[in-house]
């Protein structure tokens, strides 16, 4: 194992290189995937009563584990906080991070990470009590705003209000649970965070109908899994596992029919994806049925969305931007060829 530790670079921030040459080999010899997830975010990652992690981000980890190791359970989940997530990845404690992390220029380049796609297109929004009679974020001048400190949402909020020549009074809070309490207690007029978070929060209220999420989305928050710089092969595996889940939805491959379709179909694209034609698996040094395993782990993108975030869940998010490109969304998997 190649060891390189740059002490000097630490002064510049979280720059570190613990570039272990082949993450894939490490993962396969270890037999488990170390996947960084959030310590708890509704719909994205949380432990259930049996101690099993579940959620939309967790499902990405399981799909990658299934593709690489053939077993969606072979994941060691490492709960990370907003502060520890990047160090855990940079230092090699985890192989990949699927923690609701916004893809930004500086994170990709300055922090030396590689985002391997976007599994959820989010954006920052506002929630206000209906009784205030506010219908647009433009009416929020002078409002008190509950805001989680130390996040990009704080900066977005400042940008938005400055750009629109409005002023506001921030009420700094630490966690989402605290924000719910403060907002319900009337400590602030407005709660702002990612729209998925607002929907999850509103769903927990006694009377969700008394609160509205304003139509404006003031930021782009493309959330996706990421890996370290310096191991493009591993990055490709994570990227194409995610793409396989998206493509599977597009072609109608689900966890229910994947075994049947993997016997061979009339559609060459499906055949290549599922490994009955071509040698795509070998190109990323995996079994040819890697995508079958990934899809069987929890289902295709659409199934995962419905199970953890969709309108059947208490969170009840519409597909919106996260629909397939034919349905007006942004999901567009490159061809498997």
């Amino acid at each position: 194992m190649k060891r390189s530790v740059f002490f000097g670079a630490m002064a510049a921030g979280l720059v570190a290189g613990a570039a272990s040459a082949a993450t894939l080999d490490d993962v396969q010899s270890r037999g488990t995937l170390n996947c960084g997830v959030s310590t708890g975010l509704p719909g994205f990652s949380s432990p259930n009563a049996q101690g099993q992690w579940e959620g939309f981000d967790v499902a990405v980890c399981r799909a990658v584990a299934a593709a690489v190791l053939g077993d969606p359970q072979a994941v060691e989940f490492v709960p990370t906080t907003g502060q520890t997530r990047f160090t855990a990845l940079a230092s090699g404690e985890i192989d990949m991070l699927a923690r609701n992390t916004t893809w930004t220029f500086s994170r990709d380049n300055d922090l030396k990470f590689e985002f391997t796609g976007i599994n959820y297109y989010d954006g920052q929004g506002f929630m206000v009590p209906k009784a205030l009679g506010v219908t647009s974020a433009r009416d929020l001048s002078g409002a008190t705003v509950c805001i989680q400190t130390g996040t990009t949402t704080e900066l977005n909020l400042a940008d938005y209000f400055r750009a629109n020549n409005m002023d506001y009074e921030p009420v700094p809070i630490e966690t989402n649970a605290e924000a719910q309490q403060q907002y319900l207690a009337g400590a602030c007029d407005v709660y702002t965070t990612d729209r998925s978070g607002l929907a999850a929060t509103r769903a927990t209220f006694e009377n969700p109908g008394d609160h509205v999420i304003l139509p404006e989305t003031i930021s782009k928050e493309p959330l996706g899994p990421l890996v370290r710089h310096g191991d493009p092969e591993w990055g490709d595996i994570v990227r194409w596992t995610l793409n396989a889940l998206v493509a599977a939805e597009e072609y109608g491959v689900t966890s229910a029919n994947v075994d049947e379709l993997a016997q061979g179909t009339e559609n060459p694209e499906i055949n290549r994806l599922l490994g009955t034609e071509g040698e795509l698996g070998a190109m990323i040094r995996l079994d040819n049925n890697w995508a079958v395993n990934a899809i069987k782990a929890g289902g295709n993108y659409g199934e995962l969305f419905e199970r953890y975030l969709g309108e059947g869940t208490p969170i009840g998010l519409p597909r919106g931007l996260n629909a397939q490109w034919q349905n007006g969304g942004l999901l567009y998997a490159p061809p498997f060829r």
């Binding site: 966690t175 649970a177 999850a200 869940t313």
Partner: peptide
């Protein structure tokens, strides 16, 4: 930490 994780599950989100 677990209380935060438990609150993140859809069943118990909102409990404080």
């Amino acid at each position: 930490g677990l209380s935060n994780a438990i609150r993140a599950s859809t069943e118990w989100n909102g409990i404080y």
